[in-house]
């Protein structure tokens, strides 16, 4: 393995690369979360399951 101090264990990515991969995860979670929220809201309006 190279001795780059920037490398993040255990993937061999350096810090910037790891942060970019992480940003995709965060973005994806936000978009999926927002969509799931909206979809649930709409379903609740059409066929309420609470009360």
């Amino acid at each position: 393995m190279s001795d780059d101090p920037d490398k993040v264990w255990p993937t061999g990515l350096n810090l910037r690369e790891a942060e970019e991969v992480h940003s995709y995860l965060i973005d994806g979670t936000r978009v999926f979360g927002a969509i799931a929220l909206l979809a649930h809201l709409l379903v609740a309006v059409a066929t309420p399951w609470l009360g």
Binding site: F32, I35, L38, A39, L42, A46
Partner: peptide
């Protein structure tokens, strides 16, 4: 995302 909410939006 669009397809996921579309059917409920249409209903």
């Amino acid at each position: 995302g669009g397809f996921a909410i579309m059917p409920f939006a249409l209903l």
